[in-house]
Amino acid sequence: MSAGDDTDDRPSAALISHDAGGFAEWLHFRLHRGRLAWAAPYILWVATRFSGRGMVIAIPYGFLLAFFLIPFLIVLKISFAETALAIPPYTDLIEMVDDGFEYFVNIKLNLGNYWIILSEDTYVRAYLNSAKIAAISTLLCLIIGFPMAYAMARADESIRPTLLMLVILPFWTSFLIRVYAWIVILKTEGGLLNTFLIAIGVISPDDPLRILSTEWAMYIGIVYSYLPFMILPLYANLERMDMSLLEAAADLGCRPIKAFWVVTVPLAIPGIIAGCFLVFIPAVGEYVIPELMVGDNVRVIGRKLFTDFASERNWPLAAAVSVILLAILIIPIVLFQRQQARLQEAGQ
């Protein structure tokens, strides 16, 4: 390739125009095609670094690259596009420009989708509502899951595998079937719960419990579905705990209930954090449970995303919704990673 002076050899990315106005904000970049060759030596350098050990490490990275980073980049790309009546239904970001004089690659970034999301109340509310629902569900899972994990970890060693199996067992049936089963249980007319309560005379047939289609049903569904994700890391943590620490606490004059708070709980924090993230992160984007258990009058970001994507066929907007969702979730994920790294350093 032609070796010009080194400043010129870099890609010249220049902000060409910036039409701020309404929903269409455009960023234009111009790249000279021929000059992309600057990357070649770097790629070669990376390739030579791969030893056998490098290859082993490369496998998980390769997996993440193929199934996380690349799909994400595609979504990111779509989020900067515009809707179009085409297949796929969005415009291309990159266009080749031949102005008869020079040959350019033009990159157009549409920031309008982000603008819509951040300025429209319904989206902001949906994000906040999803975060609230996820937070409450996480808390409920912790409150219910901790005693269960604790009981499992302190149960006789011979029955622990059975108890563990019972926690995992629901995964053997489809998630959808389990959610539908809850609908059958909670239905107002002829639901299992109402039928039972009426039969034993706790409530009158004229005034059945209205749970389905309320937020209660959604919380029941989410907590039920995600509880194992809370229990399993907690159980793994509590089961590993050195019981002599509790004896030491008792020996030093600490009553069992207090020892639970000053020894067991602090030592379970890694398990609590892991469990909370495993519940919170998927619960924020939860779509199916609110949709089935509540229906139209629930405003969660997952439903909004689905409507934009499927009903409105506005892929770029839906992509932007999910990019923002990821950006929000990255904060707890990074915190989680940092916590894990610190624990590893502490040798626990």
Binding site: D242, L245, E247, L252, V263
Partner: peptide
């Protein structure tokens, strides 16, 4: 008071 074989020091 007892000194445990594993020492049982509170790691946190």
């Amino acid at each position: 008071n007892m000194m445990f074989q594993s020492y049982a020091l509170f790691p946190h």
